Simulated assay, not measured.
Amino acid sequence: MSNSLLSLKDVHANIHQYNILHGVNLEVPKGEVTMLLGRNGAGKTTTLRTIMGLWQAHAGTIELAGMDVTRQPTAQIAKQGVGYVPEDMGIFSDLTVEENMRLAAVSAPLSQERMDRIFLAFPPLKTFWHSAAGNLSGGQKQMLSIARAMAEERQLYLIDEPTKGLAPAIINTMAAALSELKAKGATILMVEQNFEVAKYLGDHCAVMEDGKIIWTGPMNELAQDNELQERLMGLNMEAS
């Protein structure tokens, strides 16, 4: 894919003695949202962690904007403009919301313009700006986790299950904020179990099974094909 910002070619990765990724091939187009879907244990989170350098690929290549980052350390990958929102949120509970945000802005101080944009997306963060992050609700902590990735311009966002365990109202807020990020031309690779959110945000889709990509295509193609959903992911729903 000529406009790919991120490219994985035959990527294998082990966790301890277990081989989790068995030759992942994936293209993430620039300026669009790619959903990484699949059953639990398919290797989705491991894929994101391997891209971020938290797990080392033992075979294959990972290229970011044409540069081989397969062996680069996590800090170096982050410096190249990759924002990572882990499934466990990765916030500092003992620090305030403000301190969490300022720590995330490593390239330049957090500007008022950027703070205003984040507050517009996530109003509770303004309310609890001086509060300890550990005192936030689950949904507010997830807002902070995503806001940290938005603390400075990124060329790529890796987001792992941002709506997991959240109430419907918070999911709507989260989806709206990510939609706004998408509208500004962000490139996003996102793991998401909520198929409605995936349909709403996704431009492209890759489905994983047993550590491999087994299907890729437009998100709307999968969204409109119930038989394909059930075959690939065991879903049984009426597509809208």
Rank of each mutant, 00 (worst) to 15 (best):
L5G: 00
L8S: 02
K9S: 12
V11F: 04
H12Q: 10
H12E: 13
A13C: 15
A13Q: 02
I15M: 13
H16G: 11
H16C: 11
Q17L: 12
Q17A: 14
Y18V: 14
Y18R: 14
I20Y: 02
L21S: 04
V24A: 09
V24C: 12
N25D: 15
L26S: 04
L26V: 06
E27D: 15
P29Q: 06
P29A: 07
V33E: 04
L36K: 00
L37W: 00
G41M: 11
A42Y: 01
G43K: 02
T45A: 12
T45L: 14
T47V: 08
L48P: 00
L48G: 01
R49D: 06
R49N: 15
M52D: 00
L54M: 11
A59Q: 15
G60R: 05
I62Q: 02
D68H: 06
T70C: 05
Q72R: 13
T74G: 05
A75P: 04
Q76H: 10
Q76M: 12
Q76F: 09
K79F: 08
G81F: 01
G81D: 02
Y84E: 05
E87T: 09
D88K: 08
M89E: 12
I91K: 01
I91V: 11
F92S: 05
D94S: 14
L95Q: 13
E98S: 12
V106H: 12
S107Y: 07
L110Q: 10
E113L: 12
R114M: 11
D116R: 09
L120Q: 14
P124H: 11
K126E: 15
K126D: 10
F128Y: 15
W129T: 07
N135A: 09
G139Q: 11
M143W: 02
M143L: 09
M143K: 03
L144N: 04
A151V: 05
E153G: 09
R154M: 15
Q155H: 08
L158Y: 03
L158V: 06
K164V: 11
G165N: 13
L166D: 06
A167Y: 06
P168H: 04
M174P: 06
A176F: 07
A177K: 04
A177D: 05
L178Y: 05
S179A: 15
L181D: 01
K182V: 01
K184R: 12
K184P: 04
I188R: 02
L189A: 03
V191T: 03
V191D: 01
N194I: 03
N194Q: 10
F195G: 00
K199I: 05
C205I: 03
M208A: 05
D210I: 08
G211N: 02
P218V: 07
E221P: 00
L222A: 00
L222D: 00
L222Y: 00
A223F: 03
D225N: 15
D225C: 03
D225G: 02
D225K: 00
D225T: 02
N226A: 15
N226H: 11
Q229M: 14
E230R: 14
E230K: 15
L232Q: 01
M233W: 02
G234R: 10
G234N: 10
L235T: 02
L235W: 02
M237K: 13
A239E: 07
A239P: 08
S240Q: 10
